[in-house]
Design a protein around this nucleic acid. Structure first.
Length: 735
DNA sequence: CGCTCATAAT
């Protein structure tokens, strides 16, 4: 953005004191001599209603013919008519015509200036509005409440507190602080600039608050993330007897969506009926969204189906609601269904003849990320490109994230490079992407580029950087960045940051250092960290430390089957079969549940779903045969199955546990993908829990044997297998 | 006489 003119210089200009005048709005005599107007065949009274009508219909051709007529009759000399003409051009969107006309005026008054300023703001040229305001001041003309209202609007659009505060100074100087509308504008301005405390102060200073004042401050709280304060103010408003309108109610409802507070939202719903706002579409949209946010999907759908008119926002709310449900779902099957429903809603939206916007695209792209639905995601990419939404930073960031989550680091990187603008989220997505793909150096370099670009990293960014260090075993760099995070940026480390550090020592085989790090930092590890430690102890054959860690993990999650699997596998690797039997007995007595091993793969828009040892698939025989052959060929070139223990899967008893890990769900899904996807296409599988070492090892061989790229995203990591290698650096398979 | 400014749902 070009630099704004400094208002400081103009504020030194000596301006007359408006307060001396009896009325601010009535300072000047009409510019044209009265007799001249009276003699005109077409007085202003004739043109003004016509110009009004013209502005309403936004018809530039009509405005131009009226303009010609006005010039021909000489009425253009009438400042009233000429001002109205400027306003009309502005309302028709003809900014240049308005400006040309204005520049030709032999004289101007504050109304003319104001019409020009307001016109610029209306036509999304707030900067020009501010420039004109400065010129007006320099010309010795002083502003009215209308003028300052428009300039404050311009500052809002520019998100400029600095200029806004200077205009605020003029408000004070001209004694317009008492003006409710100006107070509202100030409140809105500070809120838009992210300064809730200043917005609240401006609100408090409004002597006569109207419903707009209240609505402005309530929604300001929502926009700035203080839902509690917003709801408190909403209650104050009702207590003071100010009646809410549809704007207030939608704002209040959206505050209820943040928590989310269903019962409170229902009260707001009741109020919307009381104040006869329930038929308002925005109110309906917000009610529907509340139900979605509260997990009441059926209610939301019923509400949606019952709406006779819907808007793009209605569709977007439904899509976003379902997309967000994915993260909150009880299990991954429910999450998947929710995601598919979001994609389905997008399809229905386009079929209804409505054009999707950036909200629609960012929601469906995030769904594709979670589903690892690459083909779908690429289609949305093409559509977004065609409709021009790719230039939106949220959409393109969602796209970068989608490609990363689908294992396509190259496409993610290309999208990232092509972005015209990048936010913290864009940078963080790409850094995390490199890190998850095992490209630590690039992650760190990009992080440094980000700092050079002047973007301030957050907790999540550092998580990406630290995990990159951990991945590559860069102990010094990890310490350096950890220190930078806390000291330079004042970011408090959370458990995930510690987990990166522990993971790093484990990867290096430095178990003592890993435990030492924990005790020296004094944090209490969570289950993720204990799991990493146990897996490390298994690899190093350190049963002493591993057993200790397993004990701590069991304290945290006594009934978790995954803990027992870790423990069992540790004993198996050490050949301690008696201990294996002992643990199995404990599990049986303790009625420890079963492992829910699930994987799925998308082939031609259809999701194929697998359980361990799944025999239900129609093309199952072919798949198993193929898998057996693949395993034999893998053994020929050096694949040695890991000694891993098999624990009972759901619905099975102990006799059947002699199966190998051969038929774990991800292997079935990979085999299915290799068989059914086009020749050479990458195979993308999603798995609900962490992969086991044996599957991990075998899939590396599969990638070598078939020459195919295989991506498996499990609950912990992304594994990209290519030419016999995995991007996780072989420390990603915990079980 | 002409400029009418401020608020909402994804």
């Amino acid at each position: 953005m070009a630099s704004l003119p400094s208002l400081a210089t103009s504020s030194t200009t000596t301006l007359p004191d408006l307060r001396k005048h009896s009325s601010i709005n009535d300072q000047r005599a009409p510019p044209t001599a009265p007799e001249a107007v009276a003699k005109e065949p077409f007085p202003s009274a004739f043109y003004v209603p016509l110009l009004h009508r013209c502005a309403e219909t936004k018809s530039t051709p009509l405005a131009e013919s009226l303009h010609a007529h006005i010039v021909k009759t000489g009425t253009v000399q009438d400042l009233f008519v000429a001002t109205s003409m400027v306003n009309t051009y502005m309302k028709c969107g003809s900014v240049a015509s308005a400006r040309n006309l204005f520049d030709e005026f032999p004289q101007r008054n504050v109304v003319t200036w104001t019409a020009l300023i307001a016109g610029y703001v209306r036509n999304s040229e707030p900067e020009s509005g501010v420039v004109v305001f400065v010129r007006m001041l320099e010309s010795g003309c002083y502003p009215t409440n209308y003028t300052l209202g428009s300039v404050l609007n311009a500052c809002s659009a520019l998100r400029s507190v600095g200029v806004g505060q200077q205009v605020h100074g003029y408000v004070v100087k001209y004694g317009l602080e008492m003006d409710t509308s100006i107070g509202n504008s100030l409140c809105s301005l500070y809120s838009k600039c992210g300064r809730l405390e200043l917005a609240a102060k401006a609100f408090q200073r409004i002597p006569e608050r109207n419903v707009i004042s209240w609505t402005t401050i309530v929604s300001a709280c929502g926009d700035n993330g203080d839902a509690d304060m917003g709801l408190r103010l909403f209650r104050d408003m009702l207590r003071e007897g100010c009646e809410p309108n549809e704007f207030t109610l939608t704002s209040a409802m959206s505050l209820c969506c943040v928590a989310p507070a269903l019962s409170l939202g229902k009260q707001v719903h009741a109020l919307s009926i009381k104040y006869a706002c329930e038929s308002s579409l925005p109110v309906k949209n917000s009610i529907m969204y509340l139900y979605l946010k509260c997990g009441e999907i059926d209610k939301a759908r019923k509400f949606f189906d019952g709406m006779e008119t819907v808007s793009l926002i209605t569709w977007n709310a439904m899509i976003a609601g379902h997309a967000q449900m994915m993260g909150l779902a009880r299990d991954d099957a429910t999450a998947r269904l929710s995601g598919l429903e979001a994609l389905n809603l997008f399809l229905r939206l386009t079929r209804s003849g409505t054009k999707p916007d950036l909200f629609s695209f960012s929601s469906v792209l995030s769904v594709c990320s979670s589903l690892v639905a690459l083909e779908q995601g690429e289609q949305f990419h093409a559509q977004a490109l065609k409709s021009g939404f790719l230039s939106d930073v949220v959409v393109s960031s969602a796209l970068v994230n989608m490609y990363n989550k689908c294992g396509c680091i190259e496409k993610a990187s290309k999208t990232f490079i092509d972005m015209p603008v990048r936010t913290l989220i864009s940078w963080t997505s790409m850094i995390t992407g490199y890190s998850q793909h095992g490209r630590s150096r690039e992650a760190i370099e990009l992080f440094e580029d980000m700092r050079l670009a002047g973007v301030k990293p957050n907790q999540v960014t550092f998580l990406g950087v630290l995990s990159a260090c951990s991945h590559a075993g860069l102990v010094d760099e990890a310490n350096y960045y950890f220190h930078m995070m806390t000291n330079e940026y004042g970011i408090r480390p959370v458990m995930d940051h510690f987990a990166c550090m522990v993971d790093m020592f484990v990867r290096l085989g430095r178990l003592e250092d890993a435990f030492g790090y924990i005790s020296s930092t004094g944090f209490e590890p969570n289950e993720v960290i204990w799991s990493i430690l146990i897996a490390g102890c298994r690899s190093q054959g350190r049963l002493d430390l591993g057993f200790y860690a397993a004990g701590r993990l069991l304290e945290l999650r006594p009934k978790a089957i995954e803990t027992y699997v870790l423990l069992l596998n540790m004993y198996v690797s050490a050949g301690r079969w008696q201990d294996v039997a002992k643990v199995r007995r404990v599990m049986k007595d303790g009625k420890i549940g079963s492992v829910k091993d699930r994987s799925w793969i998308t082939v031609k828009d259809k999701v194929h779903f697998f359980r361990a040892d799944d025999r239900s698939h129609s093309r199952g025989d072919e798949m198993y045969e193929f898998l057996e052959r693949l395993i034999e060929r893998a053994k020929d070139i050096g694949y040695v199955p890991y000694n891993s223990v098999e624990v009972p899967s759901e619905g099975e008893d102990e006799e059947k546990t002699s199966r190998s890990t051969l038929h774990h769900s991800e292997r079935l899904a990979v085999a299915f993908g290799l068989l059914n996807l086009p020749e050479g296409a990458s195979v993308r599988v999603v798995k609900n829990i962490s992969m086991c070492r044996d599957c991990h090892s075998s899939i590396k061989f599969f990638s070598l044997l078939t020459g195919r790229e295989i991506v498996v995203r499990d609950s912990k990591r992304l594994h990209r297998f290519k030419d016999g290698q995995c991007s996780c650096g072989d420390f990603g398979a915990l079980l």
